[in-house]
Design a protein around this nucleic acid. Structure first.
Length: 483
RNA sequence: GCCGCUAUCGUCUAGUCCGGUCUAGGACGCUGCCCUCUCACGGCAGAAACUCGGGUUCGAAUCCCGAUAGCGGUACCA
């Protein structure tokens, strides 16, 4: 059809009524990828017609999250564009005009039924096993009946089957007579979602509506509305839903899935984007680690899944690690530095920090892991004496090892692994590697699990290492005396 | 209830359109082994799935019918 020659213009249209969550982020991502691939335009539209639930702070959170993910928009709040304003609360006059047109063309009408009356009708229908729908009672009233007030504005739905082609789902059919005359506005100044979305999609010249599957039943209503208004129909693509562990729809009510939470936890935007893309979409080959550019090269709506997907944090963690591997130590350092400051940790030097990152990189999955792993580099470790002893080694053997290592450190010229290993060769052969290396590692790090003692030694330096070893010796010989 | 959508390892998925190459491939996680002072990294190996029932066919994960289950919608929310 003619639609195919339209310039590609897609929109991400969130409502600022809750925390920006991963489901929203994925809808934004798929729109963004689709736009960027087809040299199209990615538009951000804020759907804040619900005055009660919409909050500015949530809108701010949406913008901040999208920016953090690197999903920049070509038109929308803060960047402007030729089709603005992009906040629905600022477009009320536009909707009003279209509402008046519909009313004067008798395609919409005022409904005088009160909520109580409607509720009673609904119950009656449901109890008989029918789909609850409005009776059309006020359809033909030219003006308000005696003693009645205007309640809402309804759209005259035709009794018809609506069929549309969904890019991911194929042909979908709904029966309009089942939903009846829907409410499109509370009054001229207060239009509702299904109406505003249709008006904006037309006025903003949207070519493809890519959104979550929870909107699929709104689609026939919007198509009918578009027809009545003489608008062009966009193409639709309904994405499978993101699910909680119990397979229910992921909701913005749950703050745990809030996107910025993941930032706080030390996840990278690249990893999140990568993971989100893999939820409901799969590349041709077996490769799973993608950068945004890689995604851009591979992505296609035709390979989007139909079934919902559970958000699996283990895999996100793994992907985060994969992206960590892709990063330079310098890059990681720039992320860690402000966090160190926030925690009141001061570092000897930039080089010192860089070296720590270098050896801890393979042990981290998130940026936050760094702090649990590396605390001993910034302050003296605390540990129990027992930890110093390798297997069933006695105090004497442990002290001997610590002593030998201290002597070697004193004599060492540059503290590197090769040199240290050479000097400790004989004691390690005599007592066993573990009996020597384990106590040193514990003396230096205070941990059961840590990087290689030679690495710690080199980074900590002579003075600091000697101090820690002598502290360890005191600790263990103190214990000996007590016995 | 009604309407719609969906259905392959625990999870994300490949394969389904154009039946045989599928004793169903990959990834996360899990288990074991190797490397190793520890942890991690790395390497190797392994357990693990076509929702069920009918059909069509020489042959079905793939096509058809039915059942079941899950999810979404059913607002004067979006």
């Amino acid at each position: 059809m003619k639609e195919s020659i339209r310039p590609i213009r897609v929109r991400f249209a969130p409502s600022p009524t809750g925390h920006f969550h991963v489901g929203g982020a994925r809808a934004a991502l798929f729109n963004w990828l689709f736009a960027r691939q087809g040299r199209g335009t990615f538009i951000l539209r804020i759907e804040d017609t619900d005055e009660v639930r919409s909050k500015k702070e949530f809108e701010d959170e949406i913008l901040e999250s999208l920016r953090w993910l690197g999903l920049n928009w070509d038109e929308g709040p803060e960047v402007g564009g030729d089709y603005g304003p992009y906040r629905q609360s600022e477009r009320v006059h536009i909707y009003k005009q279209h509402l008046e047109n519909l009313l004067s063309e008798k395609k919409a009408y005022y409904c005088y039924c009160t909520p109580e009356e409607l509720e009673a009708q609904k119950e009656a229908m449901t109890s008989q096993g029918f789909a609850p729908k409005y009776s059309g009672h006020c359809r033909s009233f030219a003006e308000a009946p005696e003693g009645r007030e205007r309640q809402v504005i309804r759209f005259k739905s035709p009794e018809a089957k609506i069929t549309f082609k969904d890019i991911v789902r194929g042909t979908v059919t709904f029966d309009a007579s089942l939903f009846g005359d829907i409410v499109i506005a509370k009054d001229l100044e207060h239009p509702l979602y299904n109406f505003t979305a249709v008006v904006d999609d037309e006025l903003m010249n949207i070519s493809h509506v890519i959104r979550g599957e929870d909107h699929i039943s709104n689609t026939p209503k919007q198509i009918l509305l578009a027809k009545a208004l003489g608008f062009q129909e966009p193409e639709f693509a309904h994405l499978p839903l993101l699910l909680n562990h119990d397979r229910s729809k992921m909701s913005k009510r749950y703050a745990e899935t809030s996107l910025l939470k993941y930032r706080e936890q030390g996840f990278f935007p690249a990893a999140i984007v990568n993971f989100l893309a893999l939820l409901g979409w799969h590349p041709k080959g077996n490769e799973e680690v993608f950068t945004l550019d890689g995604l851009l090269a591979e992505f296609s709506l035709s390979r989007v899944q139909k079934a919902g997907a559970i958000f699996n944090e283990e895999k996100l963690l793994w992907l985060n690690k994969e992206h960590l591997k892709l990063m330079e130590a310098e890059e990681i350092k720039s992320m860690i530095t402000p966090l160190l400051k926030a925690r009141g940790i001061s570092v000897r030097s930039e080089e010192f920090l860089l070296e720590i990152i270098e050896i801890q990189k393979e042990r981290m999955r998130t940026i936050s892991d760094f702090f649990d792993l590396s605390d001993f580099f910034f302050s003296l470790p605390a540990y129990s004496v027992d930890l110093l002893r390798w297997n069933n080694d006695g105090e004497e053997k442990t002290i001997e090892a610590l002593h030998e290592v201290a002597e070697a450190i004193k004599k060492a010229e540059n503290l590197d692994r090769e040199e240290m290993e050479r000097m400790l060769d004989s004691i390690m052969k005599k007592n066993g590697k573990g009996s020597v290396l384990w106590p040193v590692r514990v003396a230096l790090s205070g941990k059961k699990a840590s990087p290689d003692p030679f690495d710690i030694l080199r980074i900590l330096g002579k003075e600091e290492s000697l101090e820690r070893i002598s502290l360890a010796k005191k600790k263990i010989s103190g214990e000996q005396r007590l016995l």
